[in-house]
Design a protein around this nucleic acid. Structure first.
Lengths: 176, 176
DNA sequence: GCATTATATCTCAGTACAGAGATTCTTATC
DNA sequence: GATAAGAATCTCTGTACTGAGATATAATGC
């Protein structure tokens, strides 16, 4: 990660106005939407970097933490339900739970009603860890979002929920 | 971590129930922020899936398309500038430009002022391709965002820009 | 000019998943 | 209870990246 103010060098200046004019028709039509997609991606990346750094200090990836958080708050869950909830592939959920199991934070338990299915449950060690790191994680998330006021955060939550639901539902029914 | 928001804690007599209550207090305090982080991640994932599927039909990843789009609209760029713009690692930018070069869409050119640096430029084939697929891509983005009204999209753009800039600036070097 | 330090890119090993198909089990029907 | 369709998980291969160090060049102080 190098981020340094570039030394003086005649910049890669391109005749912006002319180029933009050339594609003006298309650009003008969709420019606002493209802009929204860009700022959405950047906001997500920026917040994710904060969150990820916090979580990485405990040796966990975001997806791993997502599973632990789900189990911590909602109790044991079927692997398939976790998969749909945190949006990973079927192979991904096996891989993630394997790793959490290897770390001793999660265990698999049989489902009495369906022997194909397995529950993931927090081990005592996993629960202890979440108790310890969750408040700190929540604070890190809050800090990452602190660029918005309380009202703005509420407004953003509403807009993003609407956007997410619409985009998830539209012509993309399967999460797999 | 300068801001350690101490959850209010009932001072004396902390049996288990009180501790659990304290946990609940922490959870409640940050619940809204965690919710915003979740809907941000989901909205991003949902929109990205649409965009990604559109781009994949042309054999490109989102990062590759991001480079092509940057070169298409802004002209030749130094690799380091592209890297900072689309947020990939130093190894990543080499890898991505290699691949675009192998596809014949991009070429490297020497920088006359700095022989360490290289420009990436669109080849004629790359420009032709972008001319062809960009409008369609823009339409796909618009469609993915169509869950919000025009006004909502404007509001979301403003909020996400503010959020992204704040999160990127805070203890994490600027991207632009 | 020459050494020193900083920067731009590249190399290489490793990580985190995605996706397709295999395996194991359930449910419905005969 | 045997068979077949369907479902949940696992296995395996492939892809897109990250990050630490290597190499070449530039800028600066002597």
């Amino acid at each position: 990660m190098t981020t340094r103010p570039a030394p003086k060098r005649s910049g890669a200046a391109a005749p912006r106005a002319a180029k933009a004019a050339a594609n003006a028709a298309v650009d003008a039509r969709y420019a606002d939407d493209l802009k929204l997609w860009v700022v959405l991606a950047r906001a997500h990346a920026a917040v994710e970097r904060h969150v990820s750094r916090d979580i990485a200090e405990h040796g966990l990836s975001i997806a791993e933490f997502g599973i632990l958080e789900l189990l911590y708050h909602k109790g044991p869950q079927l692997l398939g339900d976790i998969q749909r909830r945190i949006l990973v592939s079927s192979g991904g959920i096996t891989f993630l739970v394997d790793r959490l199991e290897a770390k001793g934070l999660v265990a698999r338990e049989a489902c009495p009603d369906d022997r194909r299915a397995r529950f993931a449950v927090l081990t005592p060690a996993g629960r202890t860890m979440m108790k310890r790191i969750f408040p700190r994680h929540a604070a890190a998330v809050s800090r990452a979002l602190s660029g918005l006021t309380r009202d703005e955060r509420q407004a953003a939550t509403r807009l993003l929920r609407t956007l997410g639901l619409a985009a998830a539902g539209e012509s993309s029914p399967g999460t797999d």
